[in-house]
Computed example of a mutant assay.
Amino acid sequence: MDRAALLNSNPVVFSFHRLVHGARHLALAGGITLLLILAMSRLIAADFTEPVLEEYVPIKSIHLPELTVTVEKSEPPAKPQDPPPQPVTRVDDKVVDPVNTTVVFNPPLPRGDQVDAAVISRDPLPVFKPAPRYPSAALRRGMEGYVVVEFTITATGAVRNVRAVAGYDGVGNPTDIFNRSAEAAAARFKYQPQLDDGVPVERHGVRNRITYKLAQ
């Protein structure tokens, strides 16, 4: 055993083993290197060329058909029809029929040493008579005419109990087409009331003629 220990511990034997081990590694490395060089040489020797690509499919020429623009001759626009005749502008009859006015001056009456003032009696006096509204139905037909209205003038000068007594067209035929308009206009009349001995009183049965005429 001592001999074996001596053999193992001999530096010469130990160096030989290391040399053998190193030579083995060198041989392995050299073999791998030779293989790599051989592979590279094979790759270099190979004649690589660009792969042949298929030619593109040729595109046929596009022929556009000739465009022909046809312009049709347009007819001139038709002449517009004449507008319908406009309704004739009406002119309200603003003539106010006069009312007979009687003014009576009574002589002063003695009263002791004093004398009474004159006492006045008179018929109603028109103050305001608005023009009537021309009925649209009569305006469309071009009708003219007049209406006689009757009413009562109150002690304050207002008008009440208005009614159409008779209505006629322009040729004298009876018609009621103007009645409502005439009654509405007469209801707005204003008067100075009738005076009897200086006292305002009502006046019944007052008649007035309202005329409807179209502008010429």
Results as ranks from 00 to 15, higher is better:
203 R>H: 14
147 V>H: 00
101 T>C: 00
105 F>R: 00
83 P>H: 02
198 G>P: 00
150 E>N: 05
51 P>S: 10
110 P>L: 14
153 I>C: 09
101 T>K: 07
38 L>I: 06
207 R>E: 11
168 Y>L: 15
92 D>S: 11
54 E>A: 15
104 V>P: 03
106 N>G: 07
168 Y>V: 14
210 I>Y: 04
102 T>C: 02
121 S>G: 05
34 L>M: 11
75 E>R: 15
188 R>D: 13
76 P>V: 09
100 N>Y: 09
130 P>M: 02
108 P>H: 01
114 Q>Y: 12
84 P>Y: 05
84 P>T: 06
84 P>R: 08
53 L>V: 14
83 P>G: 03
107 P>V: 03
180 R>K: 14
28 L>R: 05
49 T>P: 09
153 I>G: 04
85 P>Q: 11
145 G>E: 03
201 V>A: 01
76 P>A: 07
189 F>M: 05
179 N>P: 07
188 R>Y: 01
43 L>P: 00
11 P>F: 09
124 P>F: 09
111 R>S: 10
108 P>G: 03
198 G>Q: 00
77 P>Y: 05
97 D>Q: 13
190 K>H: 08
121 S>F: 07
146 Y>I: 01
150 E>K: 03
40 M>R: 03
148 V>E: 11
23 A>F: 11
98 P>S: 10
21 H>G: 03
51 P>E: 15
28 L>K: 10
43 L>S: 10
143 M>K: 11
90 R>N: 05
47 D>T: 13
184 A>V: 08
97 D>S: 08
113 D>W: 06
88 V>R: 13
164 A>D: 07
165 V>N: 09
